[in-house]
Design a protein around this nucleic acid. Structure first.
Lengths: 200, 200
DNA sequence: ACGTTAATCAACACAGTGTTTATTAAATAG
DNA sequence: CTATTTAATAAACACTGTGTTGATTAACGT
């Protein structure tokens, strides 16, 4: 079996480091933290860090990828297959897979709040938007009639907008329930800029 | 007179450093560059750097502030005072102050492309969105009827969306003219999510 | 219980930081 | 044009953090 994913010592080391990363990012942002501070906080020898990760950027990458993988899984499994008109549904209920996504955001809010905040990682924002774009492309292109606005700009607009809502939620203290946010996202995506852009 | 803003030696030093910053950011991103590489590129003694700036973050801050100041000036001077219905105008023409803004973006595209890209500075994105929010608040709140979506989320949505359009433009090689982009922004802001959100 | 291997500790050269000193060269005021 | 001011330079300093290595200890899986 793959020793790398079963040996409890390895799992512990990685778990501690990811925990330390989340904590230290919250405290002083990603750029201000060092490998030394990371290993000290995790109570891990500094040399051990370099067995598993190249540098702090590598550690961050791995953590981000874990989150993104889970996002993709949720979207893949829950994506609406049949082509419905959601404009009625969305008056009162969020799209189910969007709700699951927001719930997952909520579970990882400590990490995400920092990584999507002003001291965070803009490349993660882009990865997240790319994920949304992939799905929006399907959703939008099949319903697009003749918009005076290029499709790629429309998609950039909506995906960035969704990200903005999520960022605002995390930043302002998550006062709304995941369901409320999922509903906001669903409504804005389905009903929002669509009308103006010439969707039918 | 304020020696700090007239002495040609000082102006030259700052000019060279800001030039070097833009170049090196394009080449390897902000975090990867060092004060040493900056001063080497600018052909400036490293000690001189510390006379004018605390560290590389301070230099970045000052550069960003310069851009933001100019944004604010453009918005302040060009912001529509009387309350019009722009839905007709915007079918064919961008709002004038948005056009001016996009033209300024175009003039500083080298710097902005990097700072708003995946290796850039997320705090600048936030500052930019905050600027937009301030103006959108005026524009939206006075026209808002009864939206089922909280105003602050609506504003976060639109400002983030506008930023996304700008980022997409810069990233994809600026194939559209400033006028085209300004028109896209104007249309989406005035006509876009407004209808759904209950604007009149 | 055994062989394997992850984690530790200490040491290393190295790159970059931020500061200081004396010295040189350029700018401005008169 | 000259005198005076002051910005820029060059060289050195201690310091922090990096990334790697080799020998030793301790925990793991079978």
């Amino acid at each position: 079996m793959d020793r790398d994913t079963t040996d409890r010592r390895i799992l512990r080391t990685k778990r501690m480091l990811r925990q330390a990363l989340t904590e230290l990012m919250e405290e002083k942002g990603f750029e201000a933290l060092t490998v030394s501070s990371l290993t000290e906080r995790a109570d891990i020898n500094r040399g051990t860090f370099y067995i598993h990760y190249q540098d702090k950027y590598d550690l961050l990458d791995k953590c981000e990828d874990e989150i993104l993988k889970e996002f993709e899984r949720i979207v893949r499994e829950g994506f609406p297959t049949q082509q419905n008109d959601y404009r009625k549904l969305v008056q009162t209920d969020p799209l189910p897979h969007i709700l699951k996504l927001v719930e997952y955001l909520s579970d990882n809010s400590a990490f995400l709040k920092t990584i999507l905040g002003p001291k965070g990682d803009p490349s993660f924002q882009e990865k997240l938007k790319d994920l949304m774009k992939k799905n929006l492309t399907v959703l939008i292109e099949q319903r697009l009639s003749d918009s005076p606005i290029p499709t790629d700009y429309l998609i950039a607009y909506v995906s960035s907008a969704n990200l903005g809502v999520i960022q605002h939620w995390l930043k302002s203290g998550m006062n709304e329930s995941p369901r409320e946010i999922a509903l906001i996202l669903s409504r804005l995506t389905i009903l929002g800029p669509g009308i103006e852009a010439g969707l039918n």
